[in-house]
Amino acid sequence: MRYIVYFVIGFGFWLLLTFSINLDHLIAGVIVVAISTILFGGYFTNRPVKFLQIHRLFWIIVYIPIFLFYMLRSNIDVAYRVLHPQRPIKPGIVKIKTSLKTDIAKVFLANSITLTPGTMTCEIDGEYLYIHWIWVQTSVMDKASKIIADPFEKYLRRIFE
């Protein structure tokens, strides 16, 4: 079942990427997507029905603007630190705890943290994440978790779990 869903999604991406309906392109697409499905289909989600649940799609649409806003803020933050004559940085690696359970949610949390103000994921280890922080406000785990992970966790939990 999940191989079929993977194939359909992959083929959809291929159609968008080539953006033409020639027979040549379709045949090449089927071959390429089939190879990709055989190699990577096993890593795909066990319950493809998740793609059709409306509330998940709704929370994805809510999440995207929030994510883009944080990303823009992070860029302005880095730009400020780059252009400031004294270079105001106080870096360090802190440890935070996440309450997310599934792997895919943790990956998206790590990616979101990397692209948001002053923080970057070094490693995921079970329920702990190691974060490189460009301006360490606190090295206490609970407080750091609240500052870094909280804005995303509530959305990601609704999207992926």
Partner: peptide, 19 residues
């Protein structure tokens, strides 16, 4: 401008991705 590899990664990843 940043002093070590980790801070440089911070600057380059964020700005270059959004840019």
């Amino acid at each position: 401008r940043f002093p070590d590899v980790y801070n440089r990664l911070q600057a380059s990843t964020k700005c270059v991705t959004l840019g």
